Simulated assay, not measured.
Amino acid sequence: MSLPTIDPRTIPVIRIDNHLPAIEYPRLQADALRARFAAPPIWQPEFLAEKKFMDRQPLPAAVLLPIVLRPEPSVLLTLRTPHLSTHSGQIAFPGGKVDETDAGATAAALREAQEEIGLTADFVEVLGQLPVYVTGSAFHITPVVALISPGFVLKPNPYEVADVFEVPLAYLMNPAHHRHHQVDWQGGQRQWLSMPYQDAHTERFIWGATAGMLRNFYRFLLA
């Protein structure tokens, strides 16, 4: 079974969550984020598993959810090159499969971030992890949330990464920008979230697993 070729931008929006509160600006600052992970609240993630479309053994993976400590905090994201075998041409966090030599999800996320975009660990302060997110292609992804000190110089791997950019954290943590999509597929329905962001003359269409993990981060901060 394979995922149909679709342009997610063309799939109808069935709901926008502008009835939900945005995360207040003070709660997006470094000290507030450190405090939240130091004493996590009781909360419930909203997106944990996509509709399965690939029948294979689970593949452990990890991504870095990197929050850059700008005057207005931002999230560092990548645009994957179009020739990759999975999630090609999509916006993603730096990350990939957990290797046998990795000490765990955090080690894998840090390694992948350095390999993909040249982000070295000395600029990274790991805060903690969010719940595992399971993609329809059987990746079991652990999001590792981290603060990134400014001053880094990125060196994207041209084979994997077509672009690297930042989106304001406040924008992503405002559900007025969270759009729900739905399409008929394989005799049922497939649903996902998108968070389009207009960056100068370029629309950054954040959707699927990346948007789902960001939504879980929103729920974590809201709780």
Results as ranks from 00 to 15, higher is better:
119 L>G: 04
133 Y>T: 06
146 A>P: 10
69 L>Q: 15
48 L>K: 07
218 Y>R: 07
214 L>V: 13
30 A>D: 14
99 D>V: 08
29 Q>F: 01
200 A>T: 11
67 I>P: 09
163 D>G: 08
218 Y>M: 06
28 L>D: 02
21 P>F: 07
205 F>A: 00
192 W>K: 03
180 H>Y: 09
41 P>K: 12
5 T>R: 15
42 I>K: 15
85 S>C: 09
125 E>C: 00
163 D>K: 09
116 E>Y: 04
25 Y>R: 11
175 P>H: 02
174 N>M: 09
137 S>T: 10
74 S>F: 05
51 K>W: 04
164 V>D: 05
10 T>I: 05
38 A>V: 10
164 V>T: 14
49 A>I: 07
99 D>L: 15
83 H>W: 08
163 D>Q: 12
46 E>N: 04
20 L>R: 14
36 R>L: 07
219 R>T: 11
18 N>R: 15
138 A>F: 05
29 Q>Y: 08
66 P>V: 05
214 L>A: 09
84 L>G: 02
218 Y>F: 08
167 V>M: 05
211 A>W: 01
99 D>Q: 14
196 P>K: 06
221 L>Q: 08
180 H>Q: 13
95 G>F: 05
34 R>F: 04
60 P>Y: 11
37 F>M: 09
221 L>V: 08
210 T>D: 10
208 G>Q: 05
1 M>K: 10
123 F>W: 14
93 F>A: 01
121 A>H: 11
32 A>L: 09
54 M>I: 15
73 P>D: 02
76 L>S: 03
155 K>N: 13
204 R>K: 12
48 L>F: 08
125 E>A: 02
75 V>M: 09
136 G>I: 08
160 E>G: 12
198 Q>S: 04
33 L>Q: 07
158 P>F: 02
13 V>H: 05
184 D>C: 12
54 M>V: 15
144 V>F: 10
85 S>Y: 09
204 R>H: 09
27 R>Q: 13
179 R>G: 00
147 L>M: 03
213 M>K: 01
111 R>Y: 02
216 N>R: 00
207 W>P: 00
176 A>E: 12
129 Q>K: 11
